[in-house]
C-alpha cells in the first residue's frame, strides 16, 4: 500500500458532506455577499468610475471578487476542517489510523479547495448576470482558480493545525488574510495607488495571485503573468513545507 486511497476518499467525502449539510452557509452566503459587492461597487459606485485599462469597473472587479471569496473561503474551510476534529477530540481517529500526514493533507485540503473553487465558479456565473464579461484565457483562468484554492487551503490547514482556540482561528483571517486580499488589488489596479503603497503592495503575495487571475480574464495585469504563476507555485511549496514540518515534529497534534 503506497497510498491509503480509501482514507483520502473517506476524509474527502466526510468533509464534503459537511458542505451539503449546510448549503446556505456554504453557498448562499458567499453568493449573497458577492451580489452585494456588485450592487454597491459595480453599480452604485462603479457608474462614477472611469474604466481601468479600458475595462469597465463592474467587469474589472469580477476577478478580484472571485479571488477575494476563493482565498477567504479556502482559508476558512480548511482551517475549520482540521481545527474542528481537534476541538472535538475526534482527531484521535485520524491519529490512530494507518494514514500518513500526506494523505490527511490531500483529503482535507482537497475538500476545502473543491468547496471554495466551486463557490468561485458560482460567483463567476452570477457575475455574467450583472456585467458583460468575456474571459480571454478560460483554461488558464480555471487553472488559476484551482491553484489559488489549493494554495490558500494549504494556508488554512496550517492555521487550523496551529490554532489553539476559536479566537485564534477567526483572528488570523480577520487581521492578516482579509487585509492582504483586500489590499492586493481586488477592487483596484495597483498603479492607482501612491508610489509608496505601490512598493508596499509588491510585498503582498495576494497581489501577485489576483493580478494573474485578472490577466486570464482581460489580458492586462499589474505584474507580468509569469511572475504571478511563479509566485503561486512558490506559495504552494512554502505552505506545503510548513505543513510537512508540522507533521514531522508532531506539533500540536501528537503529545
Amino acid at each position: 500500500m503506497i497510498l491509503n486511497f480509501y482514507a483520502i476518499k473517506a476524509i474527502y467525502k466526510f468533509e464534503m458532506s459537511r458542505t451539503y449539510r449546510t448549503p446556505l452557509q456554504s453557498f448562499a452566503s458567499p453568493v449573497i455577499a458577492t451580489v452585494l459587492y456588485f450592487v454597491v461597487f459595480g453599480s452604485a459606485i462603479g457608474n462614477r468610475m472611469t474604466p481601468i485599462d479600458g475595462i469597465s469597473y463592474g467587469a474589472f472587479i469580477v476577478p478580484g471578487l472571485i479571488m477575494l471569496t476563493v482565498m477567504t473561503q479556502s482559508v476558512a474551510n480548511a482551517s475549520f476542517g482540521i481545527y474542528f476534529p481537534k476541538f472535538l477530540g475526534t482527531i484521535y481517529e485520524h491519529l490512530s489510523a494507518p494514514i500518513s500526514s500526506f494523505e490527511m493533507v490531500i483529503g482535507y485540503v482537497g475538500a476545502a479547495a473543491t468547496k471554495s473553487a466551486g463557490v468561485g465558479c458560482i460567483i463567476l456565473a452570477v457575475s455574467f448576470l450583472f456585467v458583460p464579461l468575456k474571459v480571454q484565457h478560460p483554461l488558464l483562468m480555471l487553472g488559476f482558480l484551482l491553484a489559488t484554492a489549493l494554495c490558500f487551503s494549504l494556508l488554512g490547514f496550517i492555521l487550523g493545525l496551529w490554532a489553539k482556540d476559536f479566537e485564534q482561528l477567526n483572528l488570523v483571517p480577520a487581521l492578516i488574510i482579509t487585509p492582504l486580499v483586500f489590499l492586493g488589488g481586488s477592487f483596484y489596479s495597483i498603479d492607482m495607488l501612491p508610489s509608496l503603497w505601490q512598493t508596499v503592495s509588491l510585498f503582498n503575495p495576494a497581489m501577485y495571485v489576483i493580478s494573474g487571475f485578472r490577466w486570464a480574464f482581460f489580458g492586462v495585469s499589474d505584474v507580468p503573468i509569469m511572475i504571478s504563476l511563479v509566485s503561486i507555485a512558490i506559495l504552494a511549496i512554502v505552505f506545503f513545507a510548513i505543513i510537512w514540518r508540522i507533521f514531522a515534529t508532531g506539533y500540536r497534534l501528537r503529545q
Binding site: N4, Y6, K9, A10, I11, K13, F14, E93, P98
Partner: peptide, 9 residues
C-alpha cells in the same frame, strides 16, 4: 463509513 475508510478498507 469514515472510520472504515480511514483504516484503508
Amino acid at each position: 463509513s469514515l472510520s472504515r475508510g480511514l483504516f484503508g478498507q
